[in-house]
Nucleic acid binder design. Structure first.
Length: 423
DNA sequence: TCTGGGGTCCTAGGACCC
DNA sequence: TCTGGGGTCCTAGGACCC
């Protein structure tokens, strides 16, 4: 039988902010999305004040004041770097690791021969805390879905001290399934929760005991897999080799609505640069590019609009100039005056590794700008994003996102490394 | 006044082929 | 009057995840 562990960082973004800002410890902390829009992470203290994920920041302004809640803009340079450290510690401890998201990974403990799995996980938890400063919880089960469930309960329960092991414990699994709402099961989102509730399925236990044929008919193979996983039959293997990406994108909401074509053209060029740089980082090329611009979907009493255009690139590339040329052509084609545009994005499709591309006759004539792109990437890595670029955007361009409460890049930027003064 | 960003997988239906 | 069956590929849309 397979043995999966799910390791999940507790309140990851809040924990990262607290690492270098001890005054945030013990205080309620919330982290806001880009543009300081909504709450995307909370400390335990903030959770117990009833602040929900996704709440728009303006709706909790009173609460913030009343409880002296610390507010942070999101700082992905920091979170990404801390995540790499945590993942390295965890990855080195187990035979196989699947990094599932910025703050969680699955470990394959099948081939790990230790006398006491629970104790081994407690030690791992302790070591991670000691080496990175980030608290984690660990759930262990025969399937990924059950490991996820164990992890949820490990977090909630003080008695389990951060580790909950389902292996060889059918009674515990049964109790856990009965106590878990259907909507808290991994793979069951809002829509399906509603549908299942309407049909009298309220808990993970109800779902696990639903007839296969019925689940297959209502929810397809995806739902059926979840049912099997809840019963302890593994349907999802550990993906220790990250699959190459099929699409990538760079999309942003502007700091304010923009009417001026030149300004949006500038933003779009910047977004294209970022998207192309992402592609080069994974060593891929794109076969097609799509650009969209849209107005504020929440604004009242103003016309709403969303336009987009897609184009196939002459040949797959990761070259900023080639992609930007295509994007500019799309932009001119779809642009419409008179709207206050609020958001734009560049999507790249049909990604592949360059060696999969059949050589074209054009290759003989065209000179790829590979060395130029390498130089640009190098400068931006060394001197910070935007040091070398094609557009002319100023840091204060109106479309730039608002980040009023962003913390320093403590671990990735020389100028922002915390200083310790000896008294 | 103020509402994020980046992904994956599956399915149904149409076009097309033999 | 009579009008198959099986397959692939592509796309749009819906669901989910963090």
């Amino acid at each position: 039988m397979a043995i999966f562990a799910l390791v999940d960082c507790n309140n990851f973004y809040a924990s990262c902010e607290r690492l270098f800002q001890p005054h945030l410890r013990g205080r309620p902390v919330v982290i806001l999305s880009n543009n300081d829009g909504c709450v995307i992470a909370r400390s335990d203290e903030a959770k117990s004040l009833g602040i929900l994920m996704g709440t728009p920041a303006f709706k909790i302004r009173q609460l913030i004041k009343a409880h002296d809640i610390a507010v942070c803009s999101s700082n992905y340079a920091l979170y990404g770097d801390i995540s790499e450290r945590v993942m390295r510690v965890l990855g080195e401890s187990a035979p196989n690791q699947e990094i599932y998201s910025i703050d969680e990974c699955f470990l394959d403990l099948d081939r790990l021969s230790v006398p006491n799995l629970t104790q081994w996980c407690r030690n791992l938890r302790h070591q991670t805390m000691q080496w990175t400063g980030i608290p984690v919880s660990i759930g262990i089960g025969p399937t990924k879905t059950l490991a996820k469930l164990a992890n949820r309960l490990a977090k909630k329960s003080v008695r389990e001290s951060g580790v909950l092991n389902f292996m060889d414990d059918p009674i515990r699994i049964d109790t856990a399934l009965r106590e878990t709402s259907i909507g808290d099961v991994w793979g069951i989102g809002r829509r399906w929760t509603q549908k299942l509730e309407e049909r009298g399925i309220h808990t993970a236990h109800d779902f696990a005991n639903a007839p296969d044929a019925w689940v297959r008919q209502c929810m397809g193979v995806v739902g059926l897999r979840t049912v099997h996983e809840l019963r302890g039959i593994a349907c999802h293997a550990l993906a220790d080799q990250p699959a190459p990406k099929q699409t990538t994108c760079y999309t942003r909401t502007f700091g304010t609505a923009i009417y001026d074509k030149m300004q949006i053209q500038d933003a779009v060029t910047c977004f294209t640069e970022q998207a192309a740089a992402k592609l080069r980082k994974t060593g891929q090329v794109a076969g097609a590019v799509q650009l969209f611009i849209q107005t504020d979907p929440f604004a009242r009493n103003v016309p709403k609009k969303s336009v987009s255009g897609l184009t196939t690139l002459d040949r797959p590339t990761s070259n900023t100039r080639a992609i930007a040329t295509a994007v500019t052509q799309i932009f001119d084609r779809i642009w419409q005056d008179g709207y206050g545009w609020r958001k734009a994005g560049v999507h790249l499709f049909d990604l592949s590794a360059p060696d999969q591309i059949a050589p074209s006759l054009l290759d003989v004539i065209e000179t790829p700008n590979d060395s130029l792109m390498k130089a640009v990437d190098h400068i931006n890595t060394r001197y910070g994003r935007g040091a070398a670029r094609m557009g002319f955007a100023s840091k204060n361009a109106a479309w730039q996102m608002q980040q009023a409460h962003v913390s320093p890049r403590f671990t990735t930027k020389w100028a922002e490394i915390p200083a310790v003064r000896m008294m």
